[in-house]
Amino acid sequence: MLRRLAASRSSGLAALALVVALLPLALQNAYYYEVAILVGLNAIVCVGLNLLIGYAGQISLGHAGFFGLGAYGSAILTARYGWPPLAAMAVTTLGVAALAYLIGRPILRLRGHYLAMATLGMGIIISIVVATEDQLTGGPDGMSVPALSVFGFAFAGERVWYWVVGVALLVAVWVARNLVDSPHGRALRALHGSEVGAEVAGIDSARHKVRVFVISAVYASIAGGLTAHYAGFVTPAKVTFFHSIELVTMVVFGGMASTFGAVVGAAVLTTLPQALTLFKEYEMVVFGAVMMLTMIFMPRGLVPTLAALFDRPEGPGKASRDAGGGGIRPPAR
């Protein structure tokens, strides 16, 4: 039984690795590669965000803020101060982690829609600062970012970036799955299931919430840094409220509390708009309708619903009864 569990964990990862390895066979030109890279970068954010939303049951409508800080931090340190990109990304990530910790401490005491509002406000504050401080960020026009280079080797071209992002995604998924399967992951799922239940079992829910918030912010920040160096350009568009919503939608769409769901959600919702450009002026209508219909008929998201169809429950246990924000109420303090 134990072996089966272990096997399923590594087999899922192996399947993803296989997809990453074989996908280039289907990518006919640079544009396809570009879309695939975009999918990978979004998927990294979503895998982290899913730890927070899907597993710990805490909503964030502001993660584009962390993504943006990761992107702009690395961009500013490399472009304005001439830092080497890797050092810039590392320091930025540490900075974002520290900020997420400072913000998370007070914010994560809030629950449900109040937490949604607070994270949303946080995201909007970051996006306005980014758009306004044009000395540093180039304002609404954005700024250009030097290419990623490590010890003199510059990463350039879609093909190289495909592998960079592919490996980063695999590592991101591996780490997230490890966490979920550990006592810490159990603690997160427990406080999602019942916060009082978790507390009386000895789990310091506040500490765990802040930690997973920081971890998810780090995921977003790293993806942001990679995006900036890959695109060679950052604009405030990726820092907005809309991008935050997009990210949450990907997580929920793919399936909360399912790491591969987050990847699938990112893949579908990143490629869908590209495909929908065919519909021209009907693009928004179709996109909105797809979102609504999927969530109405598959409220648990794509992957868990499909997995249940094949009677192979994805991940431990079943989907939660009350995912996100709600849960059974924590103790009154």
Partner: peptide, 14 residues
């Protein structure tokens, strides 16, 4: 779930 309903209404707004 709460989040699912949020996404549905966001879909409706789009």
């Amino acid at each position: 779930s709460v989040v699912t309903l949020i996404i549905i209404t966001i879909g409706a707004s789009i």
